[in-house]
């Protein structure tokens, strides 16, 4: 495989052609925040939190392949400020109240607030009031805690092959749905495999009846699963 030399944050780094900036950064211990990225499924560049500066252009590191002589900056002032603003927008559009969330302490969004040093949300909160769908016997979805990363949609389609999850509506009313927007309990395509639960970065999709201590998600489950399949 072709070897590529590039710079990340000034460090000379060697990578394989075809790798993404995010993969290479991770391998070299350089932390780039992510939310919609999930090992084992296709990257879509939806959350925009992994933006980096490549020769003055902002690109999502999860979808951009490394190139020879690339000069990648992961921590410029605009990059950090924009990431923080994006995170604030996410907090403001949902109802991410950690204090009584079953994922409190095991939530990627909550961790991002620490990582990105989000002191306060500078835009008004919208306090949405969506109905919680608890019609599925084992799982429930609280759409107010959904960040629309689409990890459930991708894992359901690309790993489980069930295609239960999808998107509906658009703009600020966009939401994830099961089958043709029926209650999850009525979604005939759902195999109840639970991969969406493990993949959901927040407390939006969770196991019913799980206590806070029990609801620790295995986000690496999907990655391990697909890796094993490839090796078979």
């Amino acid at each position: 495989m072709e070897t590529i030399r590039l710079k990340i944050d000034g460090r000379e780094i060697t990578a394989q052609a075809g790798q993404t900036i995010l993969e290479v950064a991770k391998e070299n211990g350089i932390n780039i925040p992510t939310l919609c990225h999930l090992d084992g499924v296709e990257d879509v560049g939806a959350c925009r939190l992994c933006i980096v500066d490549v020769h003055g252009q902002l690109v999502t590191s999860c979808t951009t392949k490394v190139g020879a002589d690339m000069d990648v900056q992961t921590q410029t002032a605009p990059v950090k400020e924009y990431r923080r603003m994006i995170l604030e927008l996410l907090f403001a559009e949902g109802s991410h109240v950690c204090s009584f969330c079953v994922s409190n302490g095991g939530c990627e969004l909550q961790d991002l607030a620490c990582d990105l040093e989000m002191h306060s949300v500078r835009v008004p909160y919208s306090f949405p009031r969506n109905r919680i769908d608890a019609t599925h016997p084992q799982f429930l979805i609280d759409r107010d805690r959904c960040v629309l990363c689409g990890r459930c949609v991708r894992v359901c389609a690309q790993v489980e092959g069930a295609h239960t999850w999808g998107f509906a509506e658009r703009g600020s009313t966009a939401r994830v749905i099961t089958d043709l927007a029926v209650d999850w309990g009525q979604a005939e395509s759902c195999t109840s495999c639970g991969k969406c639960v493990e993949s959901c970065p927040t407390g939006a999709i969770v196991r019913k009846g799980a206590s806070n201590a029990e609801m620790r998600k295995k986000a690496d489950l999907v990655g391990r699963l697909t890796e094993r399949r490839e090796h078979e």
């Binding site: 109802s95 109240v97 950690c98 204090s99 009584f100 009031r129």
Partner: peptide
């Protein structure tokens, strides 16, 4: 604390 910073639990009445 979270109520002062985010609205937190008291904020849940917004929209009612």
């Amino acid at each position: 604390g979270d109520c002062a910073v985010t609205g937190n639990v008291p904020g849940l009445r917004n929209g009612m």
